[in-house]
Nucleic acid binder design. Structure first.
Length: 581
DNA sequence: GATTTCACGTA
DNA sequence: CGTACGTGAAATCC
């Protein structure tokens, strides 16, 4: 078993590293007596960490990758195993808030309501707390208060610990990680493994932010030019281009040229004047009126161009694509709801029209792979439905389902999706009833999640992530209590599937990262069920094979069996836009 | 200046 | 065929 070694940093460029050999620790013995221990400038500690990583079996512990491990990612330390206290806490307790103080309190079983407030300036300055007696022998008392809570200022921006305090901060992280492991072991058989996988994903997020997504700048400029016009030379030029774009719509409605197309109220009035009366001007509302009046089609085309001009235009390119032609944004390992990864600066919602601009750099290729029919396959795994699991053995899961129900494939597909996502009406009605009879375990699992949502009872994903129903939907406006309840039910039903799928995806990504590193491969994009890996051209085929093997292995570890089959569609491409093979 | 609404891109 | 996320422009609130 890997030895835990904490790596923590403090403002001012200091870091501490403290190891603890768990098996060597005598019963009731002191902590931190058998492993490495160092404190100093973060660059120096990162070098020491690189040596330890190269030498042996280490699992790094940090309060969070973003706060503590940036220097390791920056120095390209090939971190193989880690424990991210914040990610472990998010798994254990749900939601997104995961400061060291909250994570520590939860792991130690302290009441969340008793958390002390951070001090502010000199108004509430008080004398440093006396060390906590039972922890003072190893120095944790420097950051742990007598009442057991963490010093509320520890780890915050304005905190300037001395060396001994920073060492105590590292030892406390170790202690917190151990307490979390115990707590997660109680949650379920997969939760500790899930925390490790989430931790790896959090470090991967630093690497994604560091490396960026390879872009072909010339193509990007060309695609932007097609939608938004030439790059403006000055403000007046920019206004002129904007006006020309507006004219493509306004020329269809003489007399209304002053309409502001960016103002939905005015657009609604404009449409009403040509007989298109709509409650709002959303795309799917206007779509049926495309042929009613030419201004509708012109408006929808204008919106597409306007989107690229404003969100993905020249300012976006200049701000987020570096001189090395890499598109960079911040990444998080999980959102606050079900636990999917998030990304900023358009990395997760780049219009497909711009995908030709995402291109492998010279000498490299992309291996692109996505998980096929991931959500129904995950449903089969998490529900334990043997009949549904049997259907996953087919490349196309809907084919055996259609055969079992005695319906055409499209009907089977709609029925399965309707069951998972909530709509229980419409064309799928009859097939849904058959689905309930044929796969009662899987359908029962979904119904139970829905019912728990109605009752406001928190749920856990397959990997043990707590799905909270209080905070997430608190601000959803609802006309009636029943609508609010139903929204909660749908959310719960969706979250156990979406969240579990996210866990498998991250386990897969972490395995790919580990098993393709020696090829010089970089994961450059994670998109919920899709991976884009940038790899030296001569290793592309090998990398593709390892991606598929990684799925088999991580799915097997995650589900604990091979009853449910997961499939990846993997191809080697130059540009993200290229068709699947 | 901060927050809300509308709209729309991705899965 | 539901859920989630991030972004920008304009309106609205304070």
């Amino acid at each position: 078993m890997a030895a835990l070694v904490a790596f923590v940093t403090a403002p001012g460029g200091r870091a501490a590293l403290v190891g603890d050999a768990p098996d060597a620790r005598p019963e009731g013995g002191a902590l931190g007596t058998s492993g490495p221990e160092a404190v100093g400038p973060v660059a120096e500690l990162a070098r020491r960490a690189a040596e330890l990583e190269a030498a042996g079996d280490v699992r790094w512990v940090w309060w969070s990758a973003g706060a503590d491990a940036a220097a390791l990612a920056g120095a390209a330390v090939p971190v193989a195993r880690c424990w991210d206290v914040a990610e472990a806490h998010r798994l254990l307790a749900g939601g997104w808030e995961a400061t060291p103080q909250v994570a520590w309190a939860t792991a130690r079983g302290l009441d969340r309501a008793g958390l002390p407030e951070a001090t502010r300036g000199d108004l509430f300055d008080f004398d440093a707390a006396a060390p906590m007696p039972e922890l003072s022998d190893v120095g944790l008392g420097r950051v742990v208060r007598p009442d057991g809570y963490l010093d509320p200022d520890a780890g915050t921006d304005g905190w300037h610990p001395d060396d001994d305090t920073l060492l105590a901060w590292a030892r406390t992280a170790l202690e917190c990680a151990r307490a979390q492991q115990s707590a997660l072991a109680e949650v379920g058989p997969r939760a500790v493994a899930a925390a490790r996988s989430e931790s790896a994903a959090a470090f991967l997020c630093l690497e994604l932010a560091r490396d960026g997504l390879p872009v072909d700048r010339a193509t990007a400029e060309q695609m932007i030019a097609e939608a938004a016009g030439a790059r403006p030379t000055d403000e007046a030029h920019a206004r002129r281009i904007r006006a020309e774009r507006d004219t493509t719509v306004l020329r269809h409605t003489p007399g209304r040229e002053t309409t502001d197309l960016r103002n939905p109220v005015q657009v609604k009035e404009l449409l009403a004047s040509v007989g298109v009366v709509v409650p709002n001007t959303r795309k799917w509302v206007l779509e049926p009126f495309r042929d009613t009046h030419p201004v509708v089609d012109a408006l929808l085309e204008w919106r597409k161009a306007e989107r690229i001009a404003t969100t993905y235009g020249y300012p976006w390119l200049d701000a987020h694509v570096g001189p090395d032609d890499r598109l960079r944004g911040g990444w998080t390992a999980c959102d606050g709801a079900a636990g999917r990864m998030t990304a900023q600066n358009g990395l997760h919602n780049l219009p497909t029209a711009l995908r030709p601009a995402v291109a492998a750099h010279p000498g490299h290729l992309f291996v692109r792979a996505d998980l096929g029919q991931i959500e129904p396959r995950v449903l089969a795994a998490v529900s334990g439905d043997e009949a549904f699991a049997a259907a996953t053995r087919a490349d196309d899961l809907y084919a055996p389902v259609a055969a079992a129900l005695g319906v055409d494939r499209p009907v089977a597909k709609i029925a399965v999706l309707a069951a998972m996502y909530g709509q229980r009406s419409g064309a799928a009605g009859e097939a849904l009833k058959d689905l309930e009879r044929t796969y009662p375990v899987a359908m029962g699992y979904l119904d139970a999640a829905y019912a728990a949502g109605l009752r406001r009872e928190p749920l856990r994903t397959f990997g043990g992530r707590l799905i909270r129903l209080d905070a997430v939907l608190a601000d959803v406006p609802a006309e009636s209590a029943a609508a609010y309840d139903a929204a909660r039910g749908r959310f719960a039903r969706n979250a156990v599937i979406q969240g579990s799928a996210a866990e498998l995806f991250k386990a897969w990504a972490a395995t790919v990262r580990a098993t393709t590193r020696d090829l010089g491969a970089q994961i450059v994009l994670c998109l919920h069920d899709e991976l884009l890996v940038h790899v030296p051209a001569q290793h592309a085929e090998e990398a593709r094979a390892r991606l598929e093997q990684a799925l088999t292995d991580s799915a097997r570890r995650w589900t604990g069996s091979s009853r449910v089959r997961f499939v990846a569609d993997a191809s080697i491409i130059h540009r993200w836009s290229e068709a699947k093979d």
